[in-house]
Design a protein around this nucleic acid. Sequence first.
RNA 1: CAGAGUGUAGCGCAGUGGUAGCGUGCCUGGUUUGGAACCAGGAGGUCGAUGGUUCGAACCCAUCCACUCUGACCA
Length: 574
Amino acid sequence: MRASRFLIATLKQNPSDAVAVSHQLMLRSGMVRQLASGLYTWLPMGLRVFRKVEAIVREEMNNAGSQEVLMPVVQPAELWQESGRWEQYGPELLRITDRHDNSFCLGPTHEEVITDLIRNELKSYKQLPANFYQIQTKFRDEVRPRFGIMRAREFTMKDAYSFHLQQSCLQDTYDAMHGAYCKIFDRIGLNYRPVLADTGSIGGSSSHEFHVLADSGEDDIAFSTDSDYAANVELAEALAPNAERPQPSQEMIEVATPGQHTIEEVSKGLGIKPSQVLKTLIVMGEADEDGKQGLVALVIRGDHELNELKAEKLDGVASPLTFAPDSLIKDTLGCSVGSIGPMGLDIPVLVDRSAAVAADFACGANKDGYHLTGVNWERDLALTSQADLRNVVVGDPSPCGQGQLEIKRGIEVGHIFQLGQKYSEALGATVLDENGKQQVMTMGCYGIGVSRVVAAAIEQNYDDNGIIWPDAIAPFQLALVPINMHKSDAVRAKCESLYAELTEAGFDVLFMDEEKARLGVMLADTELMGIPHRVVIGDRGLEAGTVEYKARRDADKQEIASDDLLNFLKQALK
RNA sequence: CAGAGUGUAGCGCAGUGGUAGCGUGCCUGGUUUGGAACCAGGAGGUCGAUGGUUCGAACCCAUCCACUCUGACCA
């Protein structure tokens, strides 16, 4: 491609409202432009990257036996009412009405549409397993779009859905998809990890997320130092401590702690470590037959964080997890939030495993302005139910039994689920089995955020000068940069012949052929745009029979005999 | 949705009551040319919108809109 015929829309200055690195660099390098909040136009440069990601995803999905389809973005309300999600989904589902006053939505995902298609098209067990995918625009009216392309409202996703009669068959496809995802992210050239994940609101049993590791990620991922174990922190189990609970050594006394409510204030006031203070959180209990909700107390160590996902899965705890309103706590327990403790509560008390081995601890006295110190389980109060309630922290033993946990940030770029029969059941997607009987199919679903992969690749690969694309998804593999082409016929002739030759050899070349463009500007632009390889042609080199080569990641340039260039590049770019 | 902030030239910003400016980018000409040059000339703005106060509003007041940040939310 000739730069003179291609929109190079680089910006010198950072648009002021971009915060995330990928957002800034995508705007500055002329990859995208914002149209409205969470809506972006892909410029030619950005679209080339996007298409390369898409092509790799498509190839590997095809290789893994999935068939491509393309479903509408606009979907009829009836289907969503049939699955129950018309009511379940909140305002994130953008609902629209057509001229006949019929309701539709913009698809945030396509389970309903594919299941509707499949119930009409698949009739026999002989057609199973079946796996279909599409690469399509999704729309989610996010409460707060942010980080540019990373969390846009309109985005592109590769979503696949598989259909089975046996769980074992689903498992096979799930494993095949897992393998295909690894191939995809390997080929793209990202540092990523498949991690155990929560199945979330979509339901189902088994689930893995694929995370690109980057400091700017929104998720915490826990890894074992000694094994392949990796899990989203929201899911990673905090094992029960091995250590026995120490014997009590202090008397329980009540201490006035006026104005001290947070763990930090209390531990500072009492002169003890936060880990010696237990915090008691009051959440809503599960509704009984009459629909009445009681309260439940959750007790964790002061230096630990509550894991809401774990908590809401416990018997007796309302899901979604809801913190009890202050007024209700005051009415029921007779004290306010900063002074609650497990001592003498007549509501269910669930104690985190780590908190259960604490001795001589401090906690609220259930009396405003007072705390207890030297409290001990069994001696001063009964230890009723124990549970895993907290987020794991660095140094915890790995749930796999080997090594300790470390925690890194990740960007979720893929997610695979075993869906089960949630949608096939609701929409009546059945086939006849060997005995001629109707059987509801079991489903799996598999997503990759195609547009997000582009942003995540930048979050993981950049420097002060701009983007550093992995070779496989770079908009161009190579920049051909002439020096003073408008004055030197030799430079022009060499560039033209090289451009023809390299293009002929199958390289994606960006020829910086703008008349009178200054070298510094061209170099800065090609670096900002992240083009991984660069060849500079000047009179000085040509007289010596050389051209200059530099990889985007390299610190130094090298002189290459111009006759060897093609072979050199074939090596370098392979 | 709650809290905070910002809207003035493509981008970054200044201007706080007297009719719009700087840097950069863009166009023309010239001089330059190995990392974002220099000189001269030029184009480009209903100052987010509406209403009000005033002789006069980018500026003061009110309402609305958009965008951003923090949080809750998130297959």
